[in-house]
Amino acid sequence: MNLTLKIWRQSGPQDKGQFVTYRVSDISPDMSFLEMLDVLNEELNAKGEEPIAFDSDCREGICGMCGLMISGHAHGPEKTTTCQLHMRSFKDGETITVEPWRAEAFPIVRDLVVDRGAFDRIIQSGGFISANTGSAPDAHAAPVPKTAADRAFMAAECIGCGACVAACPNASGMLFMGAKITHLGELPQGQPERDARVVSMVNQHDHEGFGGCTNIGECSQACPKGIPQDVISQLNKDLRTALKHGR
């Protein structure tokens, strides 16, 4: 395959940045998208041009480190992570634009690399169950209905990649946050901190500069793990309950 790539290059946070056009040839349809970028980077290196910076680590769709806006779609045309996207999803001769996640809360570090530290700070604000090591009762002390355990697991599958934010016209982090609220809220262990958790996380989310949710649904469409939009309903419900409780 031969492809034209329009890739966002930005030397640092202060730089304005611009698209630069590259051509790659002899691309195998069995390559992953990131392997195609590896090939391009090897060519750039050989020519004495600095390689394009992009994030990736596990390259098997679970660590959440990779994430590119590919021709306007977060993680590209398939419902998967960028690292699991393969070149057979593209046509020979196609022009592909490649951009970083664009959101005020995710400042660009360099080229296609962004800073998603805001997600860590949302978790710090309450995305946990307080259980110090050594304090736990026997694991069978509190049975959990299978339906609740399964729903908690579904929500806990979030990989924190940020595609939901990148896809949302409001750059909202509600799907990410709703997934955590749902994961912990479904479990008996998560109840004592339930009210405090949602209030604290929502405050942090807004403080980080994420936008609000207006029920567009792009987030769920872009989510490589298929986290459903109803985790946001859960979040809103938990927030109302907490406010009623005077939090």
């Binding site: 946990f128 049975p143 299978k146 697991f153």
Partner: peptide
Amino acid sequence: DQCVAQGVPFAREYGGL
């Protein structure tokens, strides 16, 4: 025990265990 207390959603049987 520790992981369950933290909310790790391990697979469960219908009885909740």
